[in-house]
């Protein structure tokens, strides 16, 4: 089985400094790959590259075995969806926000019906007519998730999607998200620093440290690992990796 999304020999340099160097990382169909690691490990940069929002300095990302180039990046992006930590909603109605992705793809006719359906599934259907900027943080992030699912992406990429949702609402949202994810069978890449999200959602984990993938495996294996296991323990997580790399 070929990977849906695959990174090969990726190097990213910024200002002459090498900040990411990933020899190989593949996302198989149907899996939920969690990328964990301390702040500054390059997780968000890696996600940006996987989402085809940025081309690597060298190496390449392959989508269904085809190399992603500047020329075909847009076409690939239109088969993916990304949810960031902030909801990043546009200054328009909730419905329009959820429908925008399909409209950009020229699928105007189905856009609003799909948007409504997904808003309802994330429990924010009643807010459809409201202006997006009047929503609370939790509501906004639900809209952001609905917006991504409305695209029915082949890979859903998420960068700390629950971090800006307050703790009380978070657990509920993660459970809802999990059931939607498994019922749709969506392939997903989840960048997070919270191992509880990893154990709840991920089928596989990649540990990113100092810009390179240090370990890959099922969540339980990583949790049991003598070095990376510390990442899974909320009490010691802040001391993980070589000393001083704090996480939040």
């Amino acid at each position: 089985m070929t990977a849906v999304l695959e990174a090969r020999d990726i190097v990213i340099k910024k200002g002459g400094r090498r900040i990411l160097s990933v020899d190989h990382l593949a996302v198989e169909p149907g899996e939920v790959l969690a990328i964990i690691g301390p702040n500054g490990a390059g997780k968000s940069t890696l996600l940006t590259v996987l989402a085809c929002l940025d081309l690597p300095t060298s190496g390449a990302v392959f989508f269904h075995g085809r190399r992603v180039t500047r020329a075909n990046a847009l076409a690939v992006r239109r088969r993916l969806a990304v949810v960031f930590q902030e909801p990043l909603l546009l200054d328009t109605t909730v419905l329009e926000n959820a429908a925008i992705g399909l409209k950009l793809r020229g699928r105007r006719r189905e856009a609003e019906a799909k948007a409504r359906a997904w808003l309802a599934r994330f429990g924010v259907g009643h807010l459809a007519a409201q202006q997006a900027l009047t929503l609370s943080g939790g509501e906004a992030q639900r809209v952001s998730l609905a917006r991504a699912f409305a695209l029915e992406p082949e890979v859903l990429l998420l960068d700390e999607p629950f971090a800006s949702v307050d703790v009380i609402a978070r657990a509920g949202l993660i459970q809802e998200f999990k059931s939607i994810l498994s019922s749709t069978g969506t392939t997903a890449v989840l960048v997070t620093h919270d191992f509880r999200e990893v154990s709840a959602l991920a089928t596989r984990v990649a540990v990113l440290f100092d810009g390179t993938v240090q370990a890959e495996g099922p969540p339980e294996a990583i949790a049991a690992h003598p070095r990376w296991g510390a990442l899974a323990d909320p009490r010691t997580a802040s001391g993980a990796g070589s000393g001083g790399c704090g996480w939040h």
Binding site: R77, A81, L88, I100, G101, L104
Partner: peptide, 13 residues
């Protein structure tokens, strides 16, 4: 927000 640029591109614009 500077990230809005990425989000809009990610939406397939």
């Amino acid at each position: 927000s500077p990230k809005l640029r990425l989000q809009v591109l990610a939406l397939g614009a």
